[in-house]
Design a protein around this nucleic acid. Structure first.
Length: 491
RNA sequence: GGUCGCGUGGCCGAGUGGCUAGGCAGAGCUCUGCAAAAGCUUCUACGGCGGUUCGAAUCCGUCCGCGACCUCCA
């Protein structure tokens, strides 16, 4: 497949740029993962889904992708200004178990959820606690380069000094001076920082803190932006291709990552920054604090005040893919129901590919369909347009099934391959219909359908309709066509 | 307050200076014993006001409304 014509929107430059890896065909992809102190909600999943499609498409194009997505299992603090209690430890105290039990519990839960939505696991899923030594080493490099200072057992990144030599704010468009003007009251009392924008890269631990480590600066925990810099550097190199994450991480998290990498190794770490936009509910960002978030299982069961009913994971996946990753998506029951029906139509078409009969001549345009799909994916992973093209393909498939158009062997093979590639491999959709029917049920249904066929031939429509209605009650749908009847079971 | 972004038809959601996005819903027709499915056809648009242009929903200005970030957050 390579070379590709992929273009992606680079948040760093604000433009769509042609994707040129540093070391073709290898691609380094880093995505900021979850902090495992509670269950991931649907908004979290959207971001990971975005990069799942990025990962899938890069692989499809022929790149050798190393996809690193971290698990944050220590160190993020509840309050602002680097004060307050560790989220994981707070949770551990509430649940009366060890912090690492919290970490394990919600890591397991996260993996379960990503499986549910058919997300491919990353190549490497490193944890912060397993890279304490590397973090200490990076802090030391930052200090050695004059961009970090120690105060009372904590180490801070010297933003003012950094910005005198480098461009702090290049990613987020923030300017130090402007940041200063909006200084908040949080700076008022007893802060160890020299400058309000400085951030902790090592934080002294209190006596009560359970998870803490020795360092040259005393016992403490690594700062919250550091792990990503460390682990991306370790597994992808000082400079790598794509860094992704939610838009809400752009500032300060990603800005700090850049500063740390430049501060430690004097290399701007990332070629292409990609940010996924937020999932909103009634126009506001979905978040736990607003109480408008739902958990994946609530979505499936429909057990939530905002949900009219349950939706399958693939419906949700499809729903997200029908919007551009750079736009906000507003949750609504109506939209989800529309996606449910649209997805069903698409998946049935994929299944029906096998029933298309081969002809001598091809009367449909397969190559345009195929190139359109590549064109839209190459345009910054434009999945909504790709799906629109796939629906053009659905129309073609249906016409072929009805015999209104024809297709030859080679083109049919192309069409099948194309749909399997785009729908299943790249968009990552899978058939959720209860298709694990046994031979026994198949045989029984054949008998039942034959009974009904006889009834119909005898114009005993009462019996025919009775059979259909009764099957309907147990979620089996009968469809009559000129070739006979087919059946379909749906939960 | 600062920075950035958004405002498209009944709903969701693309896109471009002039040519049908797509899905769902609605209407009509075809097929069908009926139904379902499917196919075909079809109706609602581009927040307000100015400006640039032969032509703007698309560019510029302005106003209104909404949101995100600026504190941990996907």
């Amino acid at each position: 497949m390579l070379p590709s014509n992929l273009h992606l929107y680079n948040t760093l430059t604000g433009k769509k740029e042609k994707f040129i890896p540093i070391n073709t065909p290898h691609v380094g992809l880093y995505v900021c993962g979850p902090t495992v102190y509670s269950d991931a909600h649907l908004g979290n999943i959207r971001t990971f889904l975005t990069f799942d499609v990025v990962y899938r498409y890069l692989i499809h194009l022929g790149y050798k992708v190393r996809y690193v997505r971290n698990i944050t299992d220590v160190g993020h603090l509840i309050d602002d200004a680097d004060e307050g209690e560790d989220k994981i430890e707070k949770r551990a105290r509430l649940e009366k178990i060890e912090p690492m039990e919290i970490v394990q519990k919600y890591t397991n839960g996260f993996h379960h959820t990503t499986d549910l939505f058919n997300l491919i696991p990353p190549s490497i899923e490193p944890t912060a606690t397993a890279h304490i030594i590397e973090q200490i080493e990076m802090i030391q490099r930052i200090i050695d380069n004059g961009f970090g200072y120690e105060v009372n057992g904590s180490v801070y990144f010297d933003v003012k000094k950094y910005s005198s030599k480098h461009n702090y704010g290049e990613l987020s468009g923030r300017k130090i001076d402007e940041l200063l003007e909006q200084t908040r009251e949080s700076l008022e009392g007893g802060n160890e920082k020299r400058f309000f924008a400085d951030f902790a890269i090592w934080k002294k631990a209190s006596k009560e803190t359970i998870m803490k480590w020795n360092s040259p600066w005393g016992v403490g925990v690594p700062g919250w932006h550091l792990e990503c810099s460390v682990m991306s550097t370790k597994y992808l190199g000082k400079e790598f291709d794509i860094h992704g994450g939610g838009l809400d991480l752009k500032f300060p998290h990603h800005e700090c990552e850049i500063a740390q990498s430049v501060g430690a190794d004097n290399v701007n770490p990332v070629r292409y920054w990609m940010h996924g936009n937020m999932l909103t509910v009634n126009g506001s960002k979905m978040s736990k604090s607003l109480g408008n978030s739902f958990l994946p299982m609530e979505l499936v069961t429909g057990d939530h005040p905002l949900l009219d009913k349950g939706y399958t994971p693939m419906t949700v996946r499809f729903f997200f893919l029908q919007a551009n990753y750079r736009s906000t998506v507003d949750f609504s029951n109506e939209a989800l129901q529309a996606s449910e029906k649209g997805l069903k139509r698409l998946m049935i078409a994929v299944e029906n590919l096998n029933q298309i009969k081969v002809a001598k001549e091809t009367t449909v345009d397969i190559s345009t369909l195929i190139s359109n799909c590549y064109k839209s994916m190459d345009d910054d992973f434009n999945t909504p347009i790709t799906i629109a093209h796939l629906f053009d393909g659905v129309k073609i498939i249906n016409l072929l099934l009805e015999g209104k158009e024809t297709i030859n062997v080679n083109d049919l093979e192309k069409l099948k391959t194309h749909f399997h590639t785009f729908v299943l491999d790249i968009l990552g959709l899978k058939n959720e219909e209860a298709n694990a029917n046994s031979d026994l049920t198949d045989n029984i249904m054949e008998v039942v359908l034959n009974l009904r066929k006889n009834a119909k031939e005898n114009k005993d429509y009462a019996t025919a309709d009775f059979i259909r209605d009764e099957l309907n009650k147990i979620n089996i749908t009968i469809k009559d066509s000129s070739d006979g009847s087919t059946w379909n079971y749906e939960k």
